[in-house]
Amino acid sequence: MIDVQNLSKSYSGHRAIQNLTFEVRKGEIVGLLGPNGAGKSTTMRILSGYLPPTDGKVTIAGFDVVTESLEVRKRIGYMPEKVPMYPDMRVNEFLRFRAELKKIPSRRIRARMDAVKQLCQLGDLERTIIGTLSKGTQQRVALADALIHEPELLILDEPTAGFDPTQIRAARELVKELSSHHTILLSTHILSEVEMLCTRVIIINRGRIEKADTPQNLTRMVRGGHYLKLEVKAAKEALISKLEAVKEVEDVEAIPHEEGWCTVRVYSAPGVDVRDNIFQTILKEQWQLREMTTVRATLEEAFVELTQD
């Protein structure tokens, strides 16, 4: 669906992105992550055909974004980061204007408007003047605009910025629902959202791709981010020596606290399950066990690790 080759963009000498290469396949939900100023919005503006790249090549659905921009723009629904609006228009007038611009046949406009108003929960706001709407609601109007022509590809730049928790949840449901018909590329700073939604994540930092993988693989890569947490009643030294002897265990930490209980962290290589062996050892030693949990790193930790210097 999206094919990006060696994409670079300079703003009057300042390099915003350098040599990005990635692809997004049909049906994927890809999250573009990165710290502020990483170049996410720049990338999306190029994909949407608004900015021309300084270097490199982008094709969307087989069309070049520079030379066949019109064909590309027909196929994408783009929601910019700063939702710009005509403040004097009513929601309905705005959606009709956008629908006509996007060349939806006039007999279908009504149906499409009703559909997106329902999807974005704008039903009772259709006669409201956009300038008087709250930021989150304006954001939903922009989302409705991006959806109105049923594009194959949705490019959403921080779609949930400004949403309240209920709306964020609703937006998540909406994106899930949309993903059955649309390919989606979104950027966001809410990482829990990405973990729940995205099939793949691209992390960029200072204009370069740091990593592109599934959220699960990314969290697994965090150093010391994956361990087994135990609470065992035993002496610290005994615990460390016995548990370190268990097959495939790499490291053990133990912190003693009240009444002889120890909190233990057992580290092993990613993808290796040591729970059975640990439990057998504990049984054999006849220690008392009151907790065993697998702790996984969050995407947030992966993000911080990948983007810090």
């Binding site: 503006r45 949407s48 055909g49 608004y50 019109l70 723009r73 027909k74 994408i76 783009y78 910019p80 700063k82 710009p84 609006m85 005509y86 403040p87 956008r98 611009l101 996007k102 060349k103 922009a142 605009d145």
Partner: peptide, 14 residues
């Protein structure tokens, strides 16, 4: 100034 140009020019128009 309002930034609506970005929205306008990403629609399939010339």
């Amino acid at each position: 100034k309002m930034g609506t140009m970005e929205m306008l020019l990403t629609a399939p128009i010339r």
